[in-house]
Design a protein around this nucleic acid. Sequence first.
DNA 1: TTGAAAGCGCTACCAC
DNA 2: GTGGTAGCGCTTTCAA
Lengths: 332, 332
Amino acid sequence: MKKKVTIYDIARELNVTVSTVSRALNDSKSISKETKEQVRDMAKKMNYSPNKLAASLKSGKTFTIGVIVPSARVQFFASVIHSMEDHLKSAGYGILLYQTNESLESEKQGVKTLLEAQVDGIIASLSLETETDVSHFHEVIRQGKALVLFDRSFEGLTVPSVTLNDFKAGYMAAEHLLKKGFKEILYMAPVQNIGIFRRRKEGFIAALKDYCVPNPEEKIHYGTLSIEGGRTFIRDLNDLPQAIIAGDDFTALGMLRELQERKNEKVAVMGFANEVFSEFITPSLTTIEQQPYKMGQECARLFLNMSQKNNIYDNPEEVVLEPILVKRASTK
Amino acid sequence: MKKKVTIYDIARELNVTVSTVSRALNDSKSISKETKEQVRDMAKKMNYSPNKLAASLKSGKTFTIGVIVPSARVQFFASVIHSMEDHLKSAGYGILLYQTNESLESEKQGVKTLLEAQVDGIIASLSLETETDVSHFHEVIRQGKALVLFDRSFEGLTVPSVTLNDFKAGYMAAEHLLKKGFKEILYMAPVQNIGIFRRRKEGFIAALKDYCVPNPEEKIHYGTLSIEGGRTFIRDLNDLPQAIIAGDDFTALGMLRELQERKNEKVAVMGFANEVFSEFITPSLTTIEQQPYKMGQECARLFLNMSQKNNIYDNPEEVVLEPILVKRASTK
DNA sequence: TTGAAAGCGCTACCAC
DNA sequence: GTGGTAGCGCTTTCAA
């Protein structure tokens, strides 16, 4: 472990000043070609590696962006992170990852930690617990740093965001089943504090109204998002409907399994998210694709846009991606 | 966007020096209780947020650790990342993420970027292209920074690592099939430059020898890891064997689908990785569980261990996790 | 085109 | 128990 080489070492070696070295390394136009070459050669020769920390401290830019997600293990978020990293990396930004595990407290801590790390911005998807308390995100804005929300956003925050058209997603799901001729459709609603689930539910209701199904509100049952939640949902029903819209693909899977064990496969089931497995289970699952790759890409774009502007929160762009209906066997 | 509050502001307000403020904030024992309280109250009142960058520049510790993976979208790596972040966060460390997309060039760039960001260490899983050129990792070691390799490690690097007992994994897979009475077993081998695949293959061969199956080397066919790769593998066979060990679960899935379309399900198929979907496809897939959560946890532990030692590369600990055979319907 | 020097915000050593 | 101050490695303004 040798001592680190700094621009001072290069300067001394070349009998110039650090200013010159710094400028040469940064390709400043006020430095002669020869000097630049000399400096670069020496830097390479001495195995120089810049300390970005020092540069950041001085310049105020870290070229690091904090990403806050409920869990990096969930396929959807994993894909978004993957996409973000790819698109941000090419613009010179690194990603500092923080998982909230669906806890508001953890989310607050995450924002605090990331701000202390002096990230240039934060891209976040809210935890399930984040109902109305978004004060921690106001701090991000107050500091003049870029904030981009995705998927699970909060309407009270006028910041750039990338979301799915959840209303339409709910509407599409219902319409698909209605067009298939199913009349008795049950809708499984997850917690309602999150806008994404609320809007989706509203889309469902709207579709039923448009198709003249009476009392759509009565079709809504609450449930838990998980395979077991899907099983429980079925068990708790007195009569089986013709079709069920589950809160996500895992829940839909649980429902399908529970139904199969009862030798009763006559119920159409669909999910949300288009997980990797959904195509491969039996029956293959009809679901709504949420475009995680596109979402990550758009988040990166919005952030990079902001990093070029002065008044970053003027007219925040709200990208709304279109849900895509993926028809498969489970609603045949 | 107000000007940032620094310890100078707090010091001025309280008529003390920055040393006092710094020490009070860091809970130094040489500061009186009263002063600490005053400082903390004032810090809170002024909405002070420390600039970790400055602290890092001075102290040389960033409490940030670089994580290099082929892709954060792959379930296995997503789970490891999830686990690492959880375990490292509680020790005060943040994760700077870098994806190589299986490219050596990108991996080198990643190491460079992370080192420039002054990470305290790097936890990495090698790209498929990283055959023998690991010079970039030597640079990490040369700088005296902690390096931990996981899953896809490199035997030439004597650094702490967390891997699966791949030999045993291959052995277990073969043994499972042999015990089921299958004699004609085909083994699909992915690229061989990566130690993990080589050792696994050797385990397979050893098992066949132990069970007195002649010419085990002839049972090995090379193939590509993907659903399509699995389909192609089947198509390219002249005769179907009794059982096949695929390179991973996706490939196994491709094989199963190809076989199903031929109305020929008499071939037992198993995979590696225990993906989320493997339990839910039909037939459910026998596979080898690679314990990603445990792996992430152990990586975190090894890193934290190193961060406490002086000679961090003395007797590097090599954690080898046991593969777990998950028996399911596909090899019934 | 290059040099000198201030300073980003914090820590830690040396005084007192 | 507290103060003074020299840097950490870099950028950038002002001079020359």
